[in-house]
Amino acid sequence: MDVLRIDDRLTDEERMVRDTVRTFVMERVVPHVPEWFEDGTFPVRELAPELGKLGLLGMHLEGYGCAGMSAVAYGVACRELEAADSGLRSFVSVQGSLSMTAIHRYGSEEQKERWLPRMAAGEALGCFGLTEPDRGSDPGDMLTRARRDGSDWILNGAKMWITNGSVADVAVVWAQTDEGIRGFLVPKDTPGFTTGDIHRKMSLRASVTSELVLEDVRVPADAMLPGAQGLRGPLGCLSEARYGIVWGAIGAGRSCYEAAVAYAKTREQFGRPIGAFQLTQEKLAWMEVALGQAGLTALHIGRLKDEGSVTPQQISFGKLASVRAALDVARQARTVLGANGITLEYPVIRHMNNLESVLTYEGTQEVHLLTLGKAVTGLDAFR
């Protein structure tokens, strides 16, 4: 159904990644994810070593057991993971693009050697503590504080909406200090560090979402990430995660589109398949156009990233465009399926609910719009 045949532009290696991940999710995730979504569970400890064995955790990073693959290959993997469920892609993104990237890019050699090989193998899990209960889009105003006490640091504060929070072996926690914002590695068993899962979610139910609480958490001096100071550190990691969403959302949209096309060919009304009616074909055609445009954008941004020339504004463009396209496709697909579109027998309502979260995490739609507005006008509307 890819009229533009975008995947023909992939390299052999990128197509190999596509096929490997697609086979994995079809065998290990797709048959079970409706039940996980309904029950609000995600077997992260079971799946993590399998994802590690496939080289998907931190797959764009070099060394320390990481696969060192291209940005486009990573994007294709994210697309296939999110075609199964946004929660699965979120886990891989938080593990690789946020937690592992923070350590890989800003950590000491000892920190890299201690954590990255085990994280790449799925033996150790990480989370990324940036968002706070009332500080989502303005992390520079975070309330979490770290103060020196001799050679140690004492951390106090709370983080909210943290994927993998309660299952992580190490948390990358960002805090205000007298030197500006710094990052710290906080192992899960550190005294004063506690987590609590967020329940009653109607979106990303097949995902672990937690609150982190730090009460006089004492960590040694070597827990600080030496290469990160100021907001540039966490924002650099967020750009990596947003890039994965540029591709991932297309996978969720594609899953809804495929379900709608298959249903339209078999569901009969007034004596013929509903896919034979003009209004249904119009819906399907617009879905094809939306996903084709998003796919071309993702591939272009991926090639720019592999060249080392991509900008945060371009990633904002892609994240905004892909998620909006996927959400529009999901909503249209739901109308094609009618009442069947609201059941977990089909993937549409699950993806649609998940995409409502994807629309606002890693930068809300409004934040990305204003990022593009600043790029266009040169005027900052944030402050």
Rank of each mutant, 00 (worst) to 15 (best):
A124T: 13
L125A: 11
C127Y: 02
C127V: 02
T131I: 09
T131M: 10
E132V: 00
E132L: 10
P133V: 01
P133S: 11
R135D: 08
G136S: 12
G136H: 15
S137Q: 14
S137M: 10
S137N: 12
D138F: 15
D141A: 15
D141C: 13
M142L: 12
M142N: 07
L143C: 13
L143M: 14
T144I: 12
A146T: 01
R148C: 08
R148F: 03
R148D: 01
D149W: 02
D152Q: 02
W153Y: 13
I154Y: 07
L155G: 08
L155T: 00
L155S: 01
G157W: 08
G157T: 00
G157P: 05
A158Q: 13
K159H: 11
K159N: 15
K159G: 06
M160H: 15
W161C: 03
N164Q: 12
G165R: 03
G165F: 07
S166A: 12
S166D: 01
A168D: 00
D169Y: 03
V170R: 02
A171N: 06
A171W: 05
V173C: 04
W174T: 01
Q176V: 01
T177F: 06
E179Q: 10
G180Q: 02
G180A: 06
R182N: 11
G183N: 03
F184A: 05
L185W: 14
L185V: 09
V186S: 05
K188R: 15
K188P: 10
D189V: 07
D189R: 05
D189M: 08
